[in-house]
Design a protein around this nucleic acid. Structure first.
Lengths: 339, 339
DNA sequence: CTGAAAGCGCTAACAC
DNA sequence: GTGTTAGCGCTTTCAG
């Protein structure tokens, strides 16, 4: 394997100069740099990240901890982050918890992260106190995406407001029995979004003077399957809701399916709205409160890069905008006469 | 940062012994190992992968090159692979091409892979001759998932047979005008699956003595959007097909949507079948030829591990089974009377 | 079973 | 601008 030494010998210079030239550091003549690059290319020089890492203490790698890569939101954030990291020469180490409580434990516990990455991106999880301690112990920038953890650098949307916007849309259409499908507000894999969205829903109901009926709140586990189940339960109610707000598009799609199975028309019999603007939302004409997962990934990655080359970096909370996208699964409430 | 030296000093032994003990190598008394482990834990010792990598030449990291993390199949394969790799102490470096031709070029061209990973997993791409050369030049195990590259280690399904099974199912139901929606058989990101599936479709048509109508073959780009577009085109034909075989569930879902938009009932007016058993397939009652992406990821990861600790490893081609899952989007052809 | 010592390939002060 | 010189923190012969 040809190393930096070989290149140095080839151009009859010291390895230090070669190293500087190759990395684009100042203090090297343009001509020298040219010769070095040329020689490196000719010799087929390939740098050793291990050696560089050992010597410099920087791995040019960032860890991304994700609950489930298979979920649209997470995959998309990873996609966005990878894009800008790669662009800046950083590699992305994927830690997929996959719903396995042990995996989560292992990742944080045995800090495999240490000495392996320059920074960490945590997606949507609410780290426990203990995990936060370990994360700060890393002494490296940590950016949290999709969760609101006070005091930490986060990139997310305003979940309360997103849910409020969805609920408001339904209320403005005249709906009075508005159901909510969310997710567990605690558990092994806990997120802050479910709690915030539920709060936004309830607050809006109150704001509009609408009664709060606990029977209209269901857990849809943030999956299509869960949304289908919850939707079926809700829409089979004797006094069923005329509108359903699902806290994610995947659950909303499940509700659409549930309505179909029960022979209900959307939006004639029931309005449905989600959150996300999932890639499939458009094909279902699903009205939703759009957020850009991609952008959240990119912004988070930029935060990482910024943290990495700003000596005195301080955690920042950035909130990305959401937008109500009215498509065709929501319609004005027309009373029972409309059916 | 406490290193191996600190642990050595603590137990009053050489770093060599500590290293051996920590890695579970033979030639260390049980008692010594106990003391070392204990001391390491107490001191909060964290190994440095860079140092270990530099000294041993092994990074305990495998690269996974994926066309689009956001696509169900790829995300699921990654999920499966990550699971077994992590279990065996390997990290997963994600290279997401994201449809960017430059990205692809960069990943293979500037062999960032070298000296950085112990093995490479390539998902679905058909590497070019040049890329294959570079891959072999790595001198490391390379496993290809979801593509048929003769001479290389691959893990995949029999795409020809999967497509044949789907087509056969439709033909057996009495359909004679069976459309096919696939993907480009060449391009920047080219896969072998589209070609194989098209072949399976055509072959089965011929086997059943059904005419081959080029007008019934559309490109759906393997996305819901593409499937919707292709489905709309196909189902708007004057003499429209009575059944549509989409080479992926995502496209099939697009077709379902197209049918709905055109006011056609599935399966009464048109039968639809896909391939994958995508997580959403069940909710659409989509008949499909199931493949386990998860399992392909796991098997591929096991191949990697095997290759890594078998000195004389030879590439193996493993083909995983598929299964026709008849749900409710396909039905017997009942002639025009049925409409 | 354990230890000594020589690197692995590069970076970073510090000289010149 | 460029060279010299120490390491970075491990693993790995080779001795004992």
């Amino acid at each position: 394997m040809t190393g930096i030494k070989d290149v140095a010998r080839e151009v009859e210079m010291s390895t230090a100069t070669v190293s500087r030239a190759l990395r684009g550091l100042p203090g090297v003549t343009d001509e020298t740099r040219q010769r070095v690059m040329e020689a490196a290319r000719r010799l087929g020089y390939v740098p050793s990240p291990s050696a560089a890492g050992l010597a410099s203490g920087q791995t040019r790698t960032v860890a991304v901890v994700v609950p489930f890569v298979t979920r649209w939101f997470f995959a998309t954030v990873v996609h966005g982050a990878e894009q800008v990291l790669r662009e800046h020469g950083y590699d992305l180490l994927l830690y997929n918890l996959g719903g396995d409580p042990d995996a989560r434990h292992r990742v944080f516990e045995t800090s495999l992260l240490t000495k392996r990455v320059d920074a960490v991106l945590v997606l949507s999880l609410t780290p426990t106190e203990d995990e936060l301690t370990r994360l700060s112990a890393l002494g490296r920038p940590v950016i949290i995406v999709g969760a609101d953890i006070p005091g930490w650098a986060t990139v997310r949307i305003d979940d309360v407001e997103a849910a409020a916007a969805a609920t408001r849309h339904l209320a403005d259409l005249g709906h009075r029995r508005i159901a909510y499908i969310g997710g567990a507000t605690e558990g092994v894999l806990d997120f802050t979004a479910p709690t915030a969205r539920l709060a936004g829903y309830r607050r809006t109901l109150a704001d509009h003077g609408l009664p709060h009926d606990p029977a209209l709140e269901e857990d849809g586990e943030f999956t299509v399957a869960g949304g289908l189940r919850a939707g079926r339960a809700l829409l089979s109610l004797p006094d069923r809701p005329t509108a359903v707000f699902a806290a994610s598009d995947e659950m909303a799609i499940g509700v659409l399916r549930a309505a179909h199975q029960l022979g209900l028309e959307v939006p004639e019999d029931v309005s449905v709205i989600g959150i996300d603007d999932h890639e499939m939302a458009g094909y279902f004409d699903l009205t939703t409160v759009a957020q850009s997962a991609d952008e959240q990934g990119r912004v988070a990655a930029r935060q990482v890069l910024c943290a990495l080359d700003t000596s005195e970096w301080k955690p920042e909370q950035v909130i990305l905008p959401t937008e109500l996208l009215v498509r065709r699964t929501t319609a004005p409430y027309v009373g029972t006469a409309g059916r």
